[in-house]
Amino acid sequence: MTVADAGEQSEALTSVLELLRLERTGHDTCSGTSLEHLSGRVYGGQVLAQSLIAAAATVSDAGLPAERLPHSVHGYFLRPGKLDRPITFEVERMRDGGSFSARRTHAIQDGRPILSMITSFQERQPGLDHAEDPPEVPGPEGLESSADLFSRYDHPAASFYARTGAFDIRHVEGSIYVPRGHSPLSRQALWMRSRGRVEADQLTHRALLAYACDQVMLEPVLRRHELVWTSPGLSVASLDHAMWWHRDVRVDEWLLYVQDAPSAQGGRGLGLAKVYDRAGALVATLAQEGMVRVHEGS
Rank of each mutant, 00 (worst) to 15 (best):
H130S: 15
E123Q: 15
M217K: 03
E219N: 12
Q109C: 01
V258M: 03
Y177L: 09
L239H: 06
D84S: 06
Q46R: 04
A237R: 01
T88G: 12
D28Q: 06
D240L: 11
V47C: 10
G45A: 01
T2K: 09
E141H: 02
M192D: 01
V16G: 01
A210F: 03
R268D: 12
L78K: 06
I53Y: 05
V73P: 02
A210V: 01
Q202F: 03
G269L: 00
L203R: 10
V216N: 11
D260V: 01
D248E: 10
G174S: 07
Y153T: 09
V198M: 07
R163C: 04
H106M: 13
S145D: 12
T285Q: 05
R293D: 14
L48M: 14
H37C: 08
A261K: 06
S183N: 09
D133W: 04
A56M: 07
E11A: 15
W254N: 06
S101E: 00
G32N: 14
V137C: 07
A55L: 04
G267T: 12
L227W: 10
D5K: 01
L208D: 13
R21L: 13
L282C: 10
E296A: 15
L52N: 10
S72E: 02
E8Q: 15
A264M: 06
G98R: 12
A189D: 12
H205E: 09
S34D: 06
P262F: 08
R93S: 02
R224H: 14
L239T: 11
S15I: 04
G139L: 03
R250P: 00
A287T: 10
P134H: 12
A166M: 03
L13H: 06
P65H: 07
L38Q: 06
P70S: 11
S15H: 11
R24M: 05
V59Y: 00
G97H: 10
S72M: 09
S194K: 03
E23N: 10
G196A: 02
D133R: 15
V137S: 04
A131G: 13
T204A: 11
H295Y: 13
G75T: 00
L52A: 15
C30N: 14
I176G: 09
D201S: 05
L38E: 11
S60D: 15
G290V: 00
V91P: 03
L115S: 06
D214H: 09
A56G: 13
G165E: 08
R95M: 04
H205N: 03
G142F: 03
T29G: 12
G142A: 05
P220Q: 06
A212G: 13
P126T: 13
G81Y: 12
V137T: 11
S235N: 12
A200C: 01
E18C: 06
E289Q: 14
Q9G: 04
P179R: 00
I118T: 14
V59L: 01
C30F: 07
R195Y: 03
S72P: 00
T29V: 13
E92A: 15
A55E: 06
G181Y: 05
R224S: 13
G7L: 10
G111E: 04
A261F: 07
V216W: 04
T88R: 14
L272C: 11
R224N: 08
S263M: 09
A261E: 14
S145H: 07
E92V: 05
G297M: 08
R93V: 00
R195F: 04
D248W: 02
C30P: 02
Q125R: 15
H225Q: 08
V236P: 07
R293Y: 11
A4S: 10
T204G: 09
G139A: 02
D28A: 12
G297K: 08
L218P: 09
Y76W: 13
